[in-house]
Nucleic acid binder design. Structure first.
Length: 679
DNA sequence: AATATCCGTATTTTT
DNA sequence: TACGGATATT
């Protein structure tokens, strides 16, 4: 332990060995934040704190695992593994299963993800007849996001509508009615959404009696990525801290990128006030990147009108500036990225130490095709739609029913798989099964077995299969994977019949089955899946891929906390970064700027930013199949001075040096046009 | 009442 | 492009 401390710089050492009151560590990108936190955990254990009395809250499960592994290496003890680690949501889940009874929450509650929440909203919306009228009514996605924002930001519905969803203000009363019904239904059915996990945790921590118990569980609470927590999470932390635990938070306001989830940097800024006696330690020395890369990153963030009171420095000198590569179009970009990846690999950087980052999941589509074409292996983080696929949700719905027979949405979903059963019939059957019947009475599962609800003749064979499958799986001793296999005797034919491309979908179910073998109980599997979904294609692909060398493709959000020798940032065009969905108000644009900053600061040795000038229009365009983009507004000329600018003209199909000139004139035309309607 | 078919549209980021 | 919604058909 002593040697470990010796290896730290003075600021880090101060953070690690701080004793007494609350601690705020303001840690710039690459400043050894992970090391510092891991060391602090190790140091605490070394000083005799019992591991199970330490709570480490991180942004992802992966981050928690990594940190605890490092802490174990440092202490040489395996006991660090018994530290409580995970996300706020996963921790809430664990605590509520143990102590939720006092709040009227049975340990068998199920957790629904965003898609489920939207489905419930939709169900209620339909039942109350809001979709049917002449007037356009907010869609389920909008309803769910209004709801979540209201809860997480702890603002009044009216204010949220006014500020964020002005086009819905007319529907204020209807929305409130839906929210009431939504809440009531969740309670009746023992279902919690993501926001509920936090709400109930807060309720638990502030409750008379139970609160002392729960808050008293920990001597130390450490929170990573504090800039990306929201008001509710801050409340939870404060309540837990009142139980006597010492609180440590780590964050960087320049890396706040979760405002869309109601995260607020105010949590960091106001931390010293909420936790009196706070000690503040700043980590400004960067160990990750070369000075030219830091210069470019600093230049980008320095244009932010918001204050970021630190400048990173490093002693990693290098003569190589990051590159800003202007290429013709997306194809050209993909081509160049591939070439550079291979080039660096030839020079000794394995693919695993190289990453390609982008704003949204589908920004890598073309590149993925190109990589596959050239036999360059890759894994992609973020943007994984696996769990959103209809057929996967069907399986999960069946598991959920088994876990929590009052889960109406799941019943609905499963019954719709039967032939000749639509919404109306399904409703009737659900009624018959007594799914909504509160509290007592037979379980709907028992009723399904004993007195099957009337169904259309076409549905009879399917219904028998369904009953048999569910009955067989009610035995909790069966492993989840076995249960899934059993359920598939009902599901496979239904899926083949209902969806196109049935075979491909069935292969997804094979994957799900395989994923399940790694988990024990059904409830653990379901909770894991909603709280910590497989985050990359490699999580699903299984072991064989893992030994191979592969490039990492990732959304910038999912790349948070990561670092690579070589980093490519693609699509540095206005409309991509910032996403044109986010150009509404200034706060959101600033968040996009920080997003670019996060992307740039992931690089250790080499950084490439790619800007394709020409985009093919997605929507039908007749005479004009493409348009010219402008470089991202976050790289104005004086910032570009930190880059080495290069233009590629490698497109063989398009030998004319036209693009550069054309782009300039296209920009002029656009500027002219804007003058016509902006004024 | 369910299903087939067609059309329009909106399209981020994640626990 | 894929999904949701509306309309037409069984």
């Amino acid at each position: 332990m002593f040697e470990t401390l010796e290896a730290l710089n003075p600021d880090q050492r101060e953070a690690v060995t701080h004793e007494g009151g609350p601690l705020l560590i303001v840690a710039g990108a690459g400043s050894g934040k992970t090391t510092t936190l891991a060391c602090r955990v190790a140091w605490l254990v070394d000083r005799g704190v019992s591991p199970p009395r330490i709570l480490l809250l991180t942004f992802t499960r992966r981050a928690a695992r990594e940190m605890l592994m490092r802490a174990e290496q440092l202490t040489g003890l395996s006991s660090a593994g018994r530290v409580w680690g995970g996300t706020f949501h996963a921790t809430a889940n664990r605590l509520l299963r143990l102590y939720g009874r006092g709040l009227g929450l049975p340990p068998s509650f199920t957790v629904m993800d965003l898609a489920d929440a939207e489905d419930v909203m939709n169900l209620i919306r339909g039942e109350l007849g809001y979709g049917a009228g002449e007037r356009r009514f907010p869609r389920k996605e909008t309803l769910a996001s209004i709801y979540s924002r209201t809860v997480n930001a702890q603002a009044r519905l009216g204010e949220v509508l006014e500020a964020e969803f002005p086009w819905c203000t007319d529907e204020h009363d209807a929305i409130r009615t839906i929210f009431k019904a939504y809440t009531q239904r969740k309670r009746e059915q023992h279902v919690l959404d993501y926001d509920d996990l936090l709400l109930f945790w807060r309720a638990l921590a502030t409750a008379r009696g139970a609160g002392d118990t729960v808050a008293g569980l920990f001597d130390h609470i450490l929170v990573d990525e504090y800039q990306d927590t929201n008001a509710l999470q801050a409340d939870v932390l404060e309540a837990m801290g009142r139980g006597g635990a010492q609180v440590t938070v780590v964050g960087d306001d320049a890396q706040a990128i979760y405002g869309f989830r109601s995260a607020t940097v105010r949590n960091i800024l106001e931390f010293p006030e909420r936790f009196p006696g706070t000690r503040i330690v700043r980590l400004e020395r960067n160990y990750r990147s070369t000075q030219p890369i830091l210069d470019a990153s600093n230049a980008v963030i320095s244009l932010s009108p918001q204050r970021h009171e630190k400048t990173l420095w490093t002693d990693r000198a290098s003569g190589v500036r990051p590159a800003l590569l202007t290429c013709i179009d997306e194809l050209d970009q993909a081509d160049l990225v591939c070439k550079l990846l291979l080039e660096h690999r030839e020079r000794g950087t394995p693919l695993k130490e190289q990453a390609v980052l982008f704003r949204t999941g589908h920004h890598s589509d073309l590149l993925e095709v190109e990589l596959a074409h050239r036999n360059i292996p890759f894994v992609k983080y973020g943007g994984l739609k696996f769990l959103e696929a209809a057929h996967v949700k069907d399986v999960l719905a069946m598991l959920r029913i088994l876990e929590n027979p009052r889960d109406e949405v799941s019943w609905f979903r499963v019954l719709l798989l039967l032939e000749d059963v639509g919404p109306a019939t399904a409703h009737g059957m659900i009624e018959r099964l007594g799914v909504r019947g509160a509290g007592g009475g037979d379980s709907p599962l028992r009723r399904l077995a004993d007195e099957p609800p009337p169904a259309p003749p076409q549905a009879a064979p399917g219904l028998d299969e369904l009953r048999a499958a569910l009955a067989d799986c009610m035995d909790d001793r069966l492993k989840v994977s076995v249960q899934i296999a059993r359920l598939r005797r009902f599901l496979d034919p239904a899926i083949r019949r209902r969806y196109e491309a049935g075979e491909a979908r069935l292969r997804d179910l094979d994957q799900l089955e395989r994923l399940a073998t790694a988990h024990g109980s059904r409830s653990a599997f379901l909770a894991e899946l909603t709280l910590d979904p497989p985050s990359s294609t490699s999580d699903l692909a299984g072991p064989p891929l893992l030994d191979e060398d592969y490039v990492v493709l990732s959304t910038i959000h999912s790349a948070k906390g990561g670092e690579w020798d070589v980093v490519h940032v693609i699509h540095a065009a206005d409309g991509m970064i910032p996403s044109d969905m986010a150009t509404g108000d200034e706060d959101r644009i600033e968040e996009e700027r920080r997003l670019l900053y996060v992307a740039l600061t992931r690089a250790r040795d080499a950084l490439y930013v790619h800007f394709p000038q020409r985009y093919h229009r997605r929507l039908r365009g007749q005479d004009d199949p493409h348009h010219y983009a402008q470089i991202t507004r976050f790289l104005p000329p004086d910032v570009r001075a930190s880059f080495e600018e290069r233009t590629t003209m490698s497109g063989q199909d398009d030998p004319a040096p036209r693009p550069l000139a054309a782009a300039t004139s296209a920009q002029d035309v656009d500027a002219f046009l804007r003058g016509l309607w902006d004024s």
